[in-house]
Amino acid sequence: MMERALSIRNLKVSYKDREVLKGIDLDIYKNKITAIIGPSGCGKSTLLRCMNRMIDIVEGAKVSGEVFFGGENIYAPGVDPVKIRFKIGMVFQKPNPFPKSIFENVAFGLKINGYTGDIPQMVEKSLRWAGLWEEVKDRLKDDAYVLSGGQQQRLCIARALALEPEVLLLDEPCSALDPVSTLRIEELLLNLKERLTIVIVTHNIQQAARIADYTAFLLDGNLVEFGETSSMFTVPKDKRTEDFITGRFG
């Protein structure tokens, strides 16, 4: 039995009166890459945001059900979402560096969380993990916006890694990037899974096939199929999964 990083049980989310997740049960395994695929509007980003309680800052979203992280339900009353997000990092669709220097971007999370270690050393480590160190080591004081889109996205990954999270959530991290930058990020994620668990929402079925150990297929707020990527992409159990991955819809 493989160890689980996150266990999601009967998770339901609604915005006002519209139910976008209709009872999801899903296990995320440790040190694996899990891809969440599905057509636009199927609730995959919402599901991802439930995993570190980023859903809390969406006005009007109601969540029920449980998400277990390290044996603890992160939706139990009294759980501080700030502490959860500190351990479960997130990277967004569009690169969103702060309007600060490259160094300050990576150091931000360390500073606000009262990191007591050597900040410059941790910044260097994180940039190395993100494969960005060699490109930026001579211009750490430069504004983050001088970097290219792909570099900015790797900077955002470095910024999340600086907190040494146990899980890294990525919401379509390559959708705004060119193919070369996309490949670099995929390689990076494959290297990173040794040290943490990765969940990636992707619009790109090939991307899921290339990097994910497990894939979850979501449709209209329901989990249609979940399993090892290799078997799901060769012998899908559900007709709808087959239609989706062969490009018949979505």
Binding site: I57, K83, F86, G109, I112, N113, A160
Partner: peptide, 14 residues
Amino acid sequence: PNSLREAAYALGAT
């Protein structure tokens, strides 16, 4: 932009 607020929240900012 809201994306900056999200980035900070995701890093455990209050």
